[in-house]
């Protein structure tokens, strides 16, 4: 699976022994943040899997725990801010939560890479140097070779005159170009999994589509799996194969894209879908169908976390948290009434 022989080989090779096994399996992940007003349960028992080469989208409002989930996978929760308190993150069977720091470092960037919402690079170092530095942190490469590979990848992600622009400093790049450079940095080692945390949110609307297209293109040629984190269900449709919806630090629904769009089972998902009609809408808009604020994760409601905002909430919803149940083919939802009613038809 790990490509050690040829750097240039563009296709995915799925080893027979690992075929069928998920690339990443997250089990019952729990992450807590410290805040002045108390412990925030940012991720509260989330489980999911990603298969090799698959694209999974994680969707939810800000504060639903989707970024915390991604940071937990790579052990990037700042020590003073919080910590992972439970669960397992199995990457090809190896639990990233219990490996040694050096092993985790080797995996980061090389096997699992991550790009973020803000396309920021170190302002005082040349872009080419920063990409080379990542290459050299994982491979025994000379300065020269690393630089050449960096230039090659900058070209690959669509930076014109890459050899020249590699000598630029980040402030000489536009936001979109910086995000391209970061994608180049992230994929330069041909990772098996790329975590993209709101990769287009901070960019101009016109650039957003280009970046998403670039991600798909890179995936086609390098064949990595992608975990896309977004608040925008609108960009998910043409991008991901499966979708996981998070609310209040928990997974509330999970389904293949088509199934989710056709038959959303959770009222929250239905609310989200209600605002995906316009791609160019203001991204800071509140979800029009969903009134009220996301729940406090310091002392979350006892029952279904969505109950206070749910137009269909019953006594049962406020009393007990619904289990995540199979409601269709690979389609699961955590709602007491998921199977009984089609919220969308009302």
């Amino acid at each position: 699976m790990r490509q050690t022989t040829s750097q240039a080989q563009p296709t995915v090779t799925v080893d027979a022994s690992t075929a069928g096994r998920p690339l990443l399996e997250v089990r019952d992940l729990r992450t807590e943040y410290r805040s002045p007003s108390g412990i925030v349960r940012a991720v509260d028992g989330v489980s999911f899997t990603i298969n090799p080469g698959e694209v999974l989208a994680v969707v939810g409002e800000s504060g639903c725990g989707k970024t915390a989930t991604a940071l937990s996978i790579l052990g990037l929760i700042p020590r003073h801010a919080g910590q992972v308190v439970g669960g397992q993150v199995l990457f090809e069977g190896e639990d990233l939560l219990s490996v040694r720091a050096e092993r985790l470092r080797q995996i980061r960037g090389d096997r699992i890479a991550m790009i973020f919402q803000e396309p920021t690079l170190d302002p005082v170092r040349r872009i080419g140097d920063q990409i080379s530095e990542v290459l050299r942190a994982h491979r025994a490469l000379s300065h020269h070779d690393a630089w050449n590979q960096a230039v090659e990848f900058l070209g690959l992600v669509g930076i014109p005159r890459a050899a020249e622009r590699a000598r630029d400093y980040p402030h000489q790049f536009s936001g979109g170009m910086r995000q391209r450079a970061l994608i180049a940095m992230a994929v330069a080692l041909r990772p098996d999994l790329l975590i993209a945390d709101e990769p287009t949110t901070a960019l101009d609307v016109t650039i957003q589509a280009q970046i998403l297209e670039l991600l798909l293109e890179v995936r086609r040629s390098l064949g990595m799996a992608i975990l896309l984190i977004t608040h925008d269900l609108g960009i998910v449709a043409g991008f991901a194969e499966r979708v996981m919806v998070m609310y209040g630090g928990r997974k509330v629904e999970e389904a293949p894209v088509r199934s989710l769009y056709r038959q959303p089972k959770h009222p929250y998902t239905w609310g989200l879908l209600g605002c995906t009609t316009r791609l160019d809408g203001n991204r800071r808009d509140r979800l029009p169908q969903i009134t009220g604020a996301p729940p406090s994760l310091i002392s979350p409601p006892t029952g279904c976390r969505f109950a206070p905002r749910c137009p269909h909430a019953q006594e049962l919803c406020r009393a007990s948290y619904p289990a995540l149940l199979e409601v269709g083919d690979r389609h699961r939802a955590a709602c007491h009434f998921a199977e009984g009613e089609e919220w969308g038809s009302s």
Partner: peptide, 26 residues
């Protein structure tokens, strides 16, 4: 606390390199 420091860590740079080459340098 800057994002590019997190980027460095996410890309698997050694913590010493992150601290000195990027952190202290800035």
């Amino acid at each position: 606390g800057e994002d590019y420091i997190r980027v460095g860590r996410a890309m698997g740079l050694r913590s010493r390199a992150v601290l000195f080459r990027h952190g202290l340098r800035n």
